[in-house]
Computed example of a mutant assay.
Amino acid sequence: MIAAYAAGFSPSDPLSGLVVGDRPAPEPREHWSVVDVRAAALNHHDLWTLRGVGLRAEQLPMILGTDAAGVTADGREVVVHGVIGGASGHGVGPDEPRSLLSERYPGTLAEQVAVPTWNLVDKPAGLSFVEAACLPTAWLTAYRMLFTTGRATPGQRVLVQGAGGGLATAAVLLGAAAGLEMVVTGRDEARREHALRLGAAQAVEPGTRVAPVDLVLESVGKATWTHSVRSVRPGGTIALAGLTSGDPAPAELTKVFFQEISIVGTTMGSRDDLVHLLAFLARTGVRPLVDSTFPLTGARDGLARLADGAQFGKVVLEV
C-alpha cells in the first residue's frame, strides 16, 4: 500500500526524512480492525516525529499520522480515535502504555490503518470524510481543553494563544457556538480578521493587554506564557496542550501561586470526548475549517505547508 513515512530524522530539515512509497498492508489481528482510509489530517506531531522527537531510530520506518476517517471491511464509516492503550487497554491489554498512532503503531497517512476496534467511532452522516479526519487531534484537544479540563461555561471569557492553526480555529468555532467570549492572539493581521469572522469576540497582537479571562488555551509556550499568566483572572485556569516555541523561562510561578491559578495539562482527549465532539458538530452544524487538501501522494507538499505555518485551519490528505 502507499504510505507517507519517516525513514530518517533531521531536526533542521524534517522533510528530508519523509518518504512516500510502498509499505506492507496491516495484518488482521484479534480485537483490531483494518480501516480503508478516506482522509487523514496532518498535525505538527508529524513534523516533530520527522525531527526525531518521541521516536527512536530502531523504530524506523514509521508511517506518520494520528488522524483518519474511513471505512471498515463491513462498510462502516468511522472516525479513528488515535490514542492506543493507557487506561482503557482495549485491544492491547491493561499493561500497554498510552501512545498515539505513529509512535508505537503505524499511523494513518496510508491507504489502510489498523487500530483496536474499540477505537472506532461512527462518523455522522452529515460530516464528510475530510471534515471528520480533522477531529481526532486538534479538534479533540480543543474540545477537551474547553469543556473537560477547562470546564468553560457560556458567558465566560477564553483566551486562545495563536490564530490560524487547527487547534486555535477549532477552539474559536467550538467556543463561539457554546456561548463563550473568545479572545484570540495572532501576529498576522489577516489571520486576526479571519478569527473574527469565525466568531471570535476580539483578536489582538501577541502580548496585548486584555481584560482578565476565565480560561487560557495555551499551546505555544515560551513566546506566550507570560502573557497567558498575566491575562488569566485570579483563580482562573490555563489549559496547556503544547510548547511549540519551547519551555517558558521563567515560569512565572510566583504569580501562579499568589493568584491561585490552576494549570492543567491536556493531550488529545478520550474516546468519550470524541463521541461528544461528534455529537456537538452534528447538532450545531459547526464544521472544521479546512485550509487545503492534497492527495496522499502529495504528503510532502501538505507537510511543507504545515511547516511553513502558511495554513489557516487543517491540512488534509485524501486517499
Rank of each mutant, 00 (worst) to 15 (best):
V37W: 06
G8T: 06
V315T: 09
E193N: 13
L140G: 00
R51K: 14
G91T: 12
A211E: 15
S99M: 10
G93P: 00
L180G: 06
A3V: 06
S219Y: 10
L42M: 13
E189G: 03
V183C: 12
A223H: 10
G107W: 12
P28C: 06
R283Y: 04
D273I: 13
A178T: 02
P97D: 02
A39S: 03
P94R: 11
A190V: 08
L64I: 05
D122Q: 07
R51L: 03
M145I: 05
T254G: 13
A190C: 00
V183L: 14
G166C: 02
L64V: 07
E205G: 03
A178F: 00
T141H: 01
V19F: 01
L55R: 10
L306D: 08
M1K: 07
A68C: 02
F129P: 10
G235H: 12
L198G: 00
A178V: 00
V204D: 04
L277I: 04
G164R: 09
I84Y: 06
T137Q: 04
R191K: 15
G54W: 03
V275D: 08
G17R: 07
R300P: 02
L109Q: 11
G235L: 05
T297P: 04
A73C: 01
R23H: 01
G235R: 07
V256L: 15
V79T: 09
R187G: 15
E181L: 09
G126A: 09
T254D: 13
S99R: 15
G54Q: 08
L217N: 01
A201S: 15
A211K: 13
D122F: 00
V229P: 14
W225M: 09
S88I: 09
V319D: 08
T293L: 08
T297L: 10
